[in-house]
C-alpha cells in the first residue's frame, strides 16, 4: 500500500448522558492510503457517522470524549490546538453532507462561499479566489458555471447543490474527503451521476475518501476497501470485492442477503431478525450474538476481537470461517 493519508487506531468515542457514559464508537481502526476509498457501511446507530465526525473533532466537546490516535498525513488530530484544528477542518480534510441545503449559508451566493473558503485556507486574493471557484464549479460539472457562481443555494436543484457542495469541499485541495451519505437524499438518476463524479475526482486528485453509507450498492460502486460497522465496532474490513462477494462475518452476510437486490418476487427475503442493540445496554458478549444464527455459548459471553487474516482481511467473529 502507498503512504497512508489516514491512520486511525483504537478510536473510542463516548457520549455523556444522564444515565452514564455510552460508547458510540469502540476501538475503531482505519488505514487509508492516498487515492483510496473506504466504504463505511452500517445501519443507523452503528457509529459510522460518529466515527466520521470524530475524525474532524466535530462532536460537542462537553458531551463527548474522544480517545485513541487519529493521524492525518502524519499529524495527530486529537492533539491539535484550536488554531491548528481550524486550519485542518476544511483544509487537509473536508466533509460533504447528506443535506447540501444545510451546508450552505442561505444568505450568501454559492460563489462567494466557495471563494471565502479558498481565501481562508489558501490566502488567495479576491479575484484569484473567484477564478478558482469558477474552475471548481466547472470541475464538478455544473452547467453554465459563470452564472451559477452568483446563484443562491435555493436557486439550485438538489443534484446541483450537491455538486456545489463538493466544489466547496474541494476548495482547499484536501488530502482526505469525508462523505456522510452524500447521495442518500438524491434521486436514482442523480445519485449515480454524483457517485461517478466523486469517483472521477478522487482518482484525478488522489484524495483519500471515507464514504459513509447504509446502501451496499453505493459502497460497491465507489469503494476500494469496505468496513462494516455494527453497534460501534468494525466487525469486518477488507477489499470491497472480498468482503461483498465472500462475507466472513454473519452480520455482513445478513446485510447482503437481506437486500432486495435480485430477490425473487414472492420469495421470503432472508432478513436478519431483531434489531440492533441499545448502546446503553449492550449484551455482554458479541453485540450481534442475539440476532446471529451461528451464535454459540462463547458468543454470548466474550467479545470477539478484530483478527487480521489473509489479504489484510479483518473479521471480528468466533465463527468467521464457518460462515464462508
Amino acid at each position: 500500500m502507498n503512504t497512508p493519508v489516514l491512520n486511525v487506531r483504537d478510536l473510542v468515542v463516548e457520549f455523556k448522558t444522564e444515565d452514564g457514559a455510552v460508547t458510540a464508537v469502540n476501538k475503531v481502526g482505519i488505514q487509508l492510503g492516498q487515492g483510496e476509498v473506504l466504504g463505511l457501511i452500517g445501519e443507523s446507530g452503528s457509529g459510522k457517522s460518529v466515527t466520521l465526525r470524530a475524525l474532524l473533532r466535530l462532536l460537542p466537546e462537553r458531551k463527548s470524549s474522544i480517545s485513541g490516535i487519529v493521524e492525518v498525513d502524519g499529524r495527530n488530530v486529537l492533539e491539535m490546538s484550536d488554531k491548528e484544528l481550524r486550519a485542518y477542518r476544511g483544509g487537509e480534510t473536508s466533509m460533504i453532507f447528506q443535506e447540501p441545503a444545510t451546508a450552505f449559508d442561505p444568505v450568501y451566493t454559492v460563489g462567494f462561499q466557495i471563494s471565502e473558503s479558498i481565501r481562508n485556507h489558501l490566502g488567495a486574493s479576491r479575484a484569484e479566489a473567484r477564478a478558482r471557484a469558477l474552475e471548481l464549479l466547472k470541475l464538478v460539472g455544473i452547467p453554465s458555471p459563470e452564472t451559477r457562481l452568483d446563484n443562491y443555494p435555493h436557486e439550485m436543484s438538489g443534484g446541483m447543490r450537491q455538486r456545489a457542495m463538493i466544489a466547496l469541499a474541494l476548495a482547499s485541495s484536501p488530502k482526505l474527503l469525508l462523505a456522510d451519505e452524500p447521495t442518500t437524499a438524491l434521486d436514482a438518476t442523480v445519485q449515480i451521476q454524483v457517485i461517478l463524479l466523486l469517483r472521477e475526482l478522487q482518482r484525478d486528485l488522489r484524495m483519500g475518501v471515507i464514504f459513509v453509507t447504509h446502501d451496499i450498492g453505493v459502497a460497491a460502486e465507489i469503494s476500494d476497501q469496505v468496513a462494516v460497522m455494527y453497534a460501534g465496532r468494525i466487525v469486518e474490513n477488507g477489499k470491497a470485492r472480498d468482503v461483498l462477494k465472500t462475507p466472513h462475518h454473519p452480520y455482513t452476510e445478513g446485510l447482503l442477503s437481506s437486500t432486495v437486490h435480485g430477490a425473487k418476487k414472492g420469495e421470503t427475503i432472508d432478513a436478519i431478525p431483531g434489531m440492533p442493540p441499545n448502546l446503553a445496554d449492550m449484551p455482554p458478549g458479541c453485540a450481534f450474538a442475539p440476532r446471529c444464527r451461528y451464535a454459540t455459548e462463547i458468543c454470548h459471553q466474550e467479545k470477539p476481537e478484530l483478527e487480521t487474516g489473509a489479504n489484510g482481511r479483518r473479521v471480528a467473529c468466533f465463527h468467521a470461517l464457518e460462515v464462508a
Binding site: A188, T189, Q191, I192, I195, L196, D215, I216, G217, V218, A220, E221, S223, A240, R241, L244, K245, L256, T259, H261
Partner: peptide
C-alpha cells in the same frame, strides 16, 4: 441507475 452490490459490476 439501479446499483448492483457486485463491485465488479460497476456503472
Amino acid at each position: 441507475s439501479m446499483l448492483s452490490v457486485d463491485p465488479d459490476d460497476r456503472t
